[in-house]
């Protein structure tokens, strides 16, 4: 019997034993079962990550020999940084020699640029919708909700055509400009800013603050947790974005990580080490950001759905 199957059977046998000991009051047994199931699910979710971390350090010759890590006594021959060395050694392209660092920097640049611009524009619009009454507000919000229902794929072809007309294909602007504001982000900020007390804003006005000053110095500091969540969500979305960069960019030295790694998949075929190392590099920045801002992230994510 395989060790894995044995472990599962033993875990389930534990439940049966606990249940039979006190069938009248099976609370303990069910509590045990609950944690076994949650632990099992967690292990299944973590296994691919653990596998990836092990795989990128394994020498090509032993990649398939061991499931996770080889035995420690063989480590000086079986584990090395060869995959990363090959990943970062650079490749010859039409644009000259391009190093993998370039793609990392491109991704950081695109994701950061979009995040910063969206933070400013979405929060400004969210503030206007939360704290001002004006003609056509209801219609505007209805339009925004409707525009969120329009699937992005519908707009790619006409936007592409437009970008060609404006000469924005294969430029840095071309990737950033179509995602400068999002209706989703505006709603998130509106929801957060609505709970800022009106008295504070009026007090600011009485003290002679300008409208811009009220937005920047009074409102924005109060919605800082929301802003953090928003930045994280936006950064991750852009970091992982594939469709737009893949149709708007052509020069090799301008590509982002998802586009390049998808190309590597075809290029390196069965030589897994290189594109797995690239994938590991691409996962690190979002992981760091997420662990730093985990609480804000989850509350930002669910605030739209639960508060309704």
């Amino acid at each position: 019997m395989s060790p894995l199957r044995a472990a599962v059977l033993i875990a389930l046998a534990g439940f049966v034993v606990l249940y039979l000991r006190s069938p009248r009051d099976p609370r303990l047994a069910f509590r045990y079962l609950r944690w076994v199931l949650l632990l099992g699910a967690s292990l299944l979710v973590l296994a691919p990550f653990a596998w990836l971390v092990c795989a990128v350090f394994k020498d090509k010759s032993v990649l398939n020999e061991y499931v996770f890590l080889p035995p420690p006594s063989t480590w000086d021959t079986t584990l090395n940084l060869d995959n990363f060395r090959r990943l970062f050694k650079g490749e010859d392209t039409v644009q000259g020699k391009v190093f993998f660092w370039q793609y990392v920097l491109n991704s950081v640049f695109f994701a950061s640029a979009v995040t910063v611009v969206q933070l400013v524009l979405c929060s400004a619009a969210g503030y206007a919708l939360a704290k001002f009454e004006f003609y056509g507000k209801r219609a505007l919000m209805g339009f925004m909700l409707g525009s969120m229902m329009v699937p992005a794929v519908l707009l790619f072809a006409p936007i592409y055509e437009m970008m060609v007309k404006f000469g924005l294909i294969n430029t840095y602007h071309g990737v950033v400009v179509p995602s400068l504001v999002s209706a989703y982000g505006i709603f998130l900020f509106r929801q957060a800013i609505v709970s800022v007390p009106n008295e504070m804003i009026d007090a600011g006005r009485v003290d002679g603050a300008s409208e811009l000053g009220i937005y920047l110095r009074l409102v924005m500091p109060l919605v800082r947790p929301m802003s953090a969540a928003f930045c994280l969500i936006t950064f991750l979305t852009q970091w992982n974005a594939f469709f737009q960069p893949s149709i708007f960019l052509q020069s090799q030295d301008m590509l982002t990580l998802p586009v390049v790694l998808n190309l590597y998949l075809g290029l390196y075929q069965n030589d897994y080490g290189v594109f797995l190392a690239g994938t590991a590099v691409a996962i690190i920045p979002p992981a760091i950001l997420f662990f730093a801002l985990e609480k804000e992230f989850i509350s930002g994510l669910t605030s739209g759905a639960v508060k309704g």
Binding site: F132, L140, F143, L155, M162, E211
Partner: peptide
């Protein structure tokens, strides 16, 4: 009266160029 307009202006321009126009255009395209 026009304060909210200034805050909303970037989104309005964006929505015209990247939502309304492409939708219209997708219809004809």
């Amino acid at each position: 009266r026009f304060t909210p307009l200034w805050f909303l202006l970037p989104y309005l321009v964006y929505a015209l160029v990247f939502t309304v126009y492409p939708m219209f255009n997708a219809g004809t395209l």
